[in-house]
């Protein structure tokens, strides 16, 4: 395990017009760590994710992935550097098959070029076979391999969530950003999700940054937690420290002054 954090931000911030959606955001995540990012609605959590995946370009501060500064790159270049995400409201390729959803995420590793694609060369068949096997393996981890040929939108909600995670894993990332993976899930599905997250960590040894409202999930799996409110970091530390922090309680429940 190296000493360089997989993901590091320095004074990260973004302005939308006059509004400071995220201000002075600092985080360091080492390989294999599972860090939680929590905060009330509208606190700027998803904006942080959008900054970390290149959807927005930061107006202040820097982002480093494995020590490399990645400010201003496009989303697909963030993926190439090793960052992958899921979305708060599931964004699958709905009309495509389950396995094609995963294959799309393998695109950067595919070696054949336009010529091979146009003539279906030997390399084309080899690469397609490799990607097919890789996608099936990933689907199997989530017990989705039997549904590989289903249209993605026909899957039940919980499985769509899983498929989105499988798709993110197919990009061969070093750090996975999960945006409210348990949103809209029933307790059984949430428990399954917890198993999936633990399984991913054990099997892939990657870092995970998790946004979640389900406190039982957060307190259970996260090693460290960062709390933000109105775009500012108000607390960070171990789950037990954070849950007793008066600022955090005030942010969630309000103060009586």
């Amino acid at each position: 395990m190296s000493d360089t954090p997989v993901l590091k931000t320095v004074n990260l911030g973004i302005n939308f017009g006059g509004l400071k959606a995220v201000d002075d955001f600092n985080i360091e995540i080492m390989q294999g760590e599972l860090v939680g990012l929590i905060g009330p609605n509208g606190a700027g959590k998803t904006t942080v994710f959008n900054l970390l995946t290149g959807v927005y370009a930061p107006t202040e501060g820097d982002i480093f992935i494995s020590g490399k500064r990645v400010n201003g790159l496009k989303p697909h270049q963030f993926v190439a550097e090793g960052i992958a995400r899921t979305f708060q409201n599931i964004r699958l390729f709905k009309q495509m098959s389950v396995i094609d959803n995963v294959k799309i995420a393998c695109d950067q590793s595919i070696k054949y070029k336009l010529g091979g694609g146009l003539l279906h060369s030997k390399l084309y068949w080899d690469e397609e076979q490799r990607v097919h096997e890789k996608a099936l393996e990933l689907l199997k981890l989530f017990n989705l391999d039997t549904k590989a040929d289903f249209v993605a939108s026909n899957l039940p909600y919980g499985q769509q969530r899983k498929l989105e995670i499988a798709r993110a894993l197919a990009t061969d990332m070093k750090i996975l950003l999960l945006d409210e993976p348990a949103a809209g899930m029933n307790p059984v599905e949430t428990a399954e999700l917890l198993d999936s997250i633990n399984m991913i960590r054990d099997k892939f040894g990657i870092a995970i940054l998790l946004i979640e409202h389900d406190m039982s999930l957060v307190m259970n799996v996260c090693e460290r937690i960062t709390v933000i409110d109105y775009g500012r970091t108000i607390a960070r530390g171990l789950p037990s420290e954070v849950s007793n922090n008066p600022d955090v309680i005030a942010a969630y429940l309000g103060t009586d002054d």
């Binding site: 995946t53 290149g54 959807v55 496009k74 989303p75 697909h76 993926v79 190439a80 992958a84 995400r85 979305f87 964004r91 699958l92 390729f93 709905k94 009309q95 495509m96 094609d100 294959k103 799309i104 995420a105 695109d107 950067q108 595919i110 054949y112 336009l114 091979g116 694609g117 146009l118 003539l119 279906h120 084309y124 397609e128 798709r167 993110a168 197919a170 990009t171």
Partner: peptide
């Protein structure tokens, strides 16, 4: 052949959702 290769797959993905296409590594 084009639509049955990575290229056709990528185009369909972009048609479905260009934001998540970028987030899964496609140069949209």
């Amino acid at each position: 052949c084009f639509v049955r290769s990575r290229y056709g797959r990528a185009l369909m993905a972009i048609r479905e959702d260009d934001v998540s296409s970028g987030a899964t590594g496609l140069n949209v």
